[in-house]
Simulated scan of single mutants.
Amino acid sequence: MSQAFPFSAIVGQDEMKQAILLSAVDPSIGGVLVFGDRGTGKSTAVRALAALLPKMRAVEGCAYQCDPDEAASVCPICSAAAASRRARRVPVPVVDLPLGATEDRVVGALDLERALTRGEKAFEPGLLARAHRGFLYVDEVNLLEDHLVDLLIDVAASGENVVEREGLSVRHPARFVLVGSGNPEEGELRPQLLDRFGLSVEVSTPTDLPTRVDVVKRRDAFERDRAGFCAQWAGHDARLRRRIVSARERLPAVRVPDAALEQAARLCMQLGTDGLRGELTLVRAARALAAYDGDAEVGDAHLRRIAPSALRHRLRRDPLDESGSGVRVARAIDELLPA
């Protein structure tokens, strides 16, 4: 497997990196959507995440990488073998979902080799099984076929994949953080899937000379000597990894006072977001940010920093306001949460 570009070596794109790191601290925030120009580090950041994340405990030999410490959410095989199962440390999965993937490849299907050679009906897990407890990455997510979009919406909502076909009836856990990237010029994302992303960030091509030069220098150094470049940044990635682990441990103790909840609700009311998913995501993301920063309590500063990512994709289009959603969120923040 080729070495991924180090996460800590990515130049700029601070909002994107913040969103990805917070989703690693608290997966309940939901997925991350990254929209922007080509060649701005979208897929690089997601693939760098795989090497950055600390390893997780999983049941040895389990195709779904079940957590041995969560008896209520294991697959039927692990549940039946509770007394004999052993745990080991495995990398957190970051699984690519190609645009051309078939439904069988995504959800799983009949294991044809075993069916033909042994006459057995056995289930061959798909990409959703591999992504359980990790990240499912869809590049050019706005070009994904409609039937796969519907499938992802169902599984993301239930946390479970149900396969009933070819004489098989299989149900297994499939909880993952959905990460999508794309170029808005190539098409919009369906609203039903857009709402399933907890955070949405916009990236653009750097416009200042020093940043552009730095990006080219680092990428060129990486391509010429991948091992040496990764070794150079290994210490920076290790510090980030420790910070993620500390934030996860600190997260349950972070307080969200009523004042912060009221500010989050006011902000969503001011922007006219539909439903309450905006408030829930904003509060969860602000809590994760506080834990990542080492703070004991969520305050206005945390809400200010994360609100654009949590709310910009939840706004209705206003025919009387030609400004973009990011500008509307910034105006509301300045009015309700002045620095």
Rank of each mutant, 00 (worst) to 15 (best):
T273N: 02
M269A: 15
R133H: 13
L144G: 01
R133D: 02
R239P: 01
L148R: 09
V201Q: 11
A234W: 01
L136K: 09
N183P: 05
E262N: 14
S181H: 06
R219E: 02
R196G: 06
D258R: 11
L144H: 01
L261I: 14
L189S: 12
A174D: 11
H236C: 07
L152G: 04
V245L: 14
R241F: 07
V170Q: 13
P173A: 13
Y137P: 05
D146K: 15
A259V: 15
R190K: 12
V141R: 04
R248P: 01
D150Y: 08
A174L: 08
V149W: 03
L189P: 05
V179E: 03
W233F: 14
L251A: 04
P191D: 08
Q263T: 04
G235Y: 03
R175V: 10
E249K: 12
A234G: 03
D146A: 15
V177G: 09
N183G: 08
P184F: 10
E262S: 14
D237I: 09
D214A: 15
R133E: 07
S181K: 06
D225Y: 04
F135C: 05
D208F: 07
R266T: 02
R241C: 11
L209C: 00
L189I: 15
R250M: 08
R250F: 04
V254N: 11
V177W: 06
R219P: 00
L178N: 11
F176Y: 15
F176T: 08
E188V: 06
D154E: 14
G228T: 08
V216F: 07
V256H: 10
V149K: 06
E188L: 10
S158Y: 02
V141Q: 05
A221Y: 00
R218H: 01
E164W: 00
E140S: 05
V138Q: 03
A260K: 10
M269Q: 12
P184I: 12
L193P: 07
P206M: 07
R196A: 06
P206T: 10
E186P: 06
P252T: 08
A238I: 09
G182C: 09
V170P: 10
P206D: 05
